[in-house]
Lab assay of single mutants.
Amino acid sequence: MTYKAILNGKTLKGETTTEAVDAATAEKVFKQYANDNGVDGEWTYDDATKTFTVTE
């Protein structure tokens, strides 16, 4: 399944996708990606669109 992350960081804005077996696995991948890029904020998840959003 393909999951998407939308990054609304102070220094990084954009989107990325990952293939994962479930939302929990995708969330770990996206949170690591955000952390590696200095983005730390509030996370939300929309199951209907399989989209995570982080906003700083």
Results as ranks from 00 to 15, higher is better:
1 M>V: 13
1 M>R: 13
2 T>M: 13
2 T>Q: 11
2 T>I: 15
3 Y>F: 13
3 Y>R: 04
4 K>A: 05
4 K>N: 05
4 K>Q: 06
5 A>T: 04
5 A>C: 15
6 I>A: 04
6 I>Q: 05
6 I>G: 03
7 L>Y: 12
7 L>M: 10
7 L>H: 03
7 L>V: 10
7 L>P: 00
8 N>T: 06
8 N>D: 10
9 G>M: 10
10 K>M: 11
11 T>F: 14
12 L>S: 08
13 K>N: 09
13 K>D: 05
13 K>P: 04
14 G>A: 14
14 G>F: 15
14 G>Q: 13
14 G>L: 15
15 E>W: 14
15 E>M: 13
15 E>S: 11
15 E>T: 13
16 T>P: 03
16 T>D: 02
16 T>N: 04
16 T>A: 12
17 T>G: 04
17 T>D: 05
17 T>E: 10
17 T>F: 14
18 T>V: 14
18 T>P: 01
19 E>T: 14
19 E>P: 04
20 A>T: 04
20 A>N: 03
20 A>R: 02
20 A>I: 02
20 A>H: 03
20 A>E: 03
21 V>G: 09
22 D>F: 03
22 D>P: 01
22 D>K: 00
24 A>G: 07
24 A>L: 11
25 T>F: 08
25 T>E: 13
25 T>M: 11
25 T>V: 09
26 A>E: 00
27 E>G: 07
28 K>W: 08
28 K>C: 09
28 K>E: 09
28 K>I: 11
28 K>T: 10
28 K>Y: 08
29 V>A: 08
29 V>T: 09
30 F>Y: 01
30 F>G: 00
30 F>M: 03
30 F>C: 00
30 F>A: 00
31 K>V: 07
31 K>D: 02
31 K>N: 03
32 Q>H: 06
32 Q>P: 01
32 Q>G: 06
32 Q>W: 04
33 Y>T: 03
33 Y>D: 02
33 Y>V: 05
33 Y>W: 15
33 Y>Q: 04
33 Y>I: 08
34 A>Q: 01
34 A>C: 12
35 N>H: 14
36 D>S: 10
36 D>M: 10
36 D>I: 10
37 N>D: 02
37 N>S: 08
39 V>M: 12
39 V>G: 02
39 V>C: 04
40 D>K: 13
40 D>H: 14
40 D>W: 14
40 D>N: 13
42 E>P: 05
42 E>G: 05
42 E>H: 11
42 E>T: 12
42 E>W: 12
42 E>D: 12
42 E>N: 10
43 W>E: 00
43 W>S: 01
43 W>N: 01
44 T>H: 10
44 T>L: 08
44 T>E: 11
44 T>V: 11
45 Y>V: 01
45 Y>G: 00
45 Y>I: 00
46 D>H: 05
46 D>T: 04
46 D>A: 03
46 D>M: 04
47 D>P: 14
47 D>V: 10
47 D>R: 07
47 D>I: 09
48 A>E: 13
48 A>D: 11
48 A>F: 09
49 T>H: 05
49 T>Q: 06
49 T>R: 06
50 K>A: 06
50 K>R: 14
50 K>G: 05
51 T>F: 02
51 T>K: 02
53 T>D: 02
53 T>E: 05
53 T>L: 08
53 T>N: 05
54 V>Y: 07
55 T>W: 09
55 T>I: 09
56 E>S: 07
